[in-house]
Design a binder for these strands. Sequence first.
DNA 1: CGTCCTTCTTGAACACGTTCAAAACAAGGA
DNA 2: TCCTTGTTTTGAACGTGTTCAAGAAGGACG
Lengths: 222, 222
Amino acid sequence: MLRVAKSEETRSLIVTTAMRLFTENGYDRTTMRAIAAGAGVSVGNAYYYFSSKEQLIQGFYDEIARQHLDAARDRIGGETAFAVRLKTVLLCWLDIAEPYQRFGTQFFVNAADPESPLSPFSDDSSAAREASIGLMREVVDGSDVKLDPELRGQLPELLWLYQMGVVLFWVHDRSAGQKRSRLLVERSVPLIARLAALSRLRVFRPVSREIVDLIQDLAKKD
Amino acid sequence: MLRVAKSEETRSLIVTTAMRLFTENGYDRTTMRAIAAGAGVSVGNAYYYFSSKEQLIQGFYDEIARQHLDAARDRIGGETAFAVRLKTVLLCWLDIAEPYQRFGTQFFVNAADPESPLSPFSDDSSAAREASIGLMREVVDGSDVKLDPELRGQLPELLWLYQMGVVLFWVHDRSAGQKRSRLLVERSVPLIARLAALSRLRVFRPVSREIVDLIQDLAKKD
DNA sequence: CGTCCTTCTTGAACACGTTCAAAACAAGGA
DNA sequence: TCCTTGTTTTGAACGTGTTCAAGAAGGACG
């Protein structure tokens, strides 16, 4: 199948060129014509492989997610404190995403569109979403945290939502090295951990139960 | 100044036409050429009054916010229960925004761009944001809720953030009459109220104090 | 009335994302 | 070698948001 190899080569040449230009000049200032020219193909050819300009960044997004999963798993190995595990995972994401913040912003703008396949809530993203939630499950299960057992099953999904919140903050973060986002993580993680621990207290239980129920009800598609 | 009156008339004719076409056909499918033609002016003229297509919806957004402020104030008058007041304000927003959900979605996509003046966190939106936070302050102050006094000052801002979360959910909500969003409000408001009340408990105080501190530190521009 | 100045208005032109009919290419079979 | 079929590639063309040089309209002042 020399044919297939050649085809794959063209495709990857296009996406590589696109990523380079996006990081160099930003998403908006990079034209499809420039990408095609840079890759030495026609503009129509780029559209033969990618149905839109937006589509071009999906591959890039998957790449970041994959890197994060690997690096985070590596870094939390051995650690048993819940707060440390969670903090490590989030800081790790900030580390990996840092070089791309400039055009990452544009990505998240597109992702904000509920109709877009790039939305973190869309069906198209479900694989990536499940993987991220899975990582949060490892964070919980690999730790020695004591929890209301009712909460335990739902916590990974809640933590993923919390992570989406951090990402939202990061997108708006214009501080050097995204240090405000780091500050947010450093100081909100202990809070989360504390709240999770509080879930076992009698006064708190009805609240955490109701949170779990509500999320389950909202998740129902009806 | 007949001149000024004429100018205002043209401006408002353009924005009215735009709103009509947006609601009829959606944001993307409404072209600037169609808006100009519908208003009986040239396309360049539309750009004389509005610097971009996006800008055209800012006026509309202000309109919704104003309506919400009026209606919500009206509806919570007399009521003293914190949870009821909060719930009323949020349901009121859902009522008012309902007819526009279809192209409202597009608005919030644009608002997701941190660079956009439409972003709820931007300087350009600060007036509208302050007004919304002010409404939340009325919700708190007009109620008989007992709170950790440290939390009290910050709570309106927290509630505004919570409202932004509800809006984010609403944007993604495809259920009939946005009943999932209503469900979210109905059931999460009591939780919020309960958590607010818990803020006075000794075990909970360090947590609520730390939340207040964190937000203050993040608000510092440095 | 004529001359300036400001405010509005025009529509052609531009750059971009995207589409599509046509061509070029590759590989098998006659 | 020549045809057939499927894949890949091309670039002109379309529709869009946006810009801009040019002009029209409406006073103010001599």
